[in-house]
Amino acid sequence: MMLRRKFLSIAGAIAGIFLAPPLTAAELLSPADAANWLQKISDASRRMAYEGVFVVQHGSAMQTLSVTNRPTGSTKDSHLSALDGNQREIRCTQSGSLLRVTEGGQVKTEKRLNNRHFPDLLPPNAAALANWYSVKLGEWARIAGLECRQVEIVPKDAYRWGYVICADKDSSLPLKAVMINEAGTPLMQYAFAEIRIGGSPKAETQTSLDTWRMPAQAATTRPIGTETISVSHLPPGFSRVAAVRRTLPNPSGGLRKPGEVEHWVFSDGLTYISLFLEPATHPISSVRGQSKQGMINMVTRQVGPMQATILGDAPWATIEAVATGLETRSDSPDLRGAAK
């Protein structure tokens, strides 16, 4: 019975995703008001206690996840669990973020470099986004039985995509988020099917917490050493937010040999671009990739002795700008060695 109710409410939410009325006559906010709204939404997703089930839809793929969030001071302790397909769980705490995948009876735990997930999409310092995005207040809507206000986050240039967030009337917690491209076409959508805001989400048992202990050998990142590549220019508002050496996951179980790469991340706070650097084993021609739904763009090119792979949930212009801005450092030890 419980399952049936859950299924019906999820089906309702899915219908809501597709039947949502088009936005009309949205009110453009001043930069100050825009910053306030963005900060309010960002704070709510981290500081509120909530638990619920949400649906993710991108292209023809759909996934249902449960989420629980307990605020812990300025950060959060959240737990996501995929309800369909392979068992995938993510746990984000003050000390980091872990992904646990159960497949074929085996449990694999990996450390994630970031703890961003719906409904916590905006960065802690969300007000700064107002430099690169306009904010418009749209119509009222109803998601998971709660009233919410549509907030359009509209990019000011061609280097990022926009979002339409439906923020809960009382708490400002995002109940729905839609990532849209420059043509206004939805690329990815999230919507709560059921949610309980406030109160005390059910605490996990000690046994459950113990299963999240990270195996010592699973620490797969370390700081990068001497940099051989630099970026001469980035799209406006983007800066490097991470740079580590890591072993790439091999989800396909393919032929790729495990090897370390440098993983750099550039972001404006909402859009994230990854750059992977590794020694080029053979001459590389520039290859461009795009996901079926156009959500992810990717390019591979050779920069000096390195192969650079740039990808992100961003327009091609952003990926191309990062790719063309890469150059070999003149003081690179590799080049000095080659000159001898």
Binding site: R88, L248, N250
Partner: peptide
């Protein structure tokens, strides 16, 4: 796939 999987650390993806 490995690059996409690694990038998912920074997307909202599960």
């Amino acid at each position: 796939l490995p690059y996409l999987a690694a990038h998912q650390d920074f997307t909202q993806a599960v």
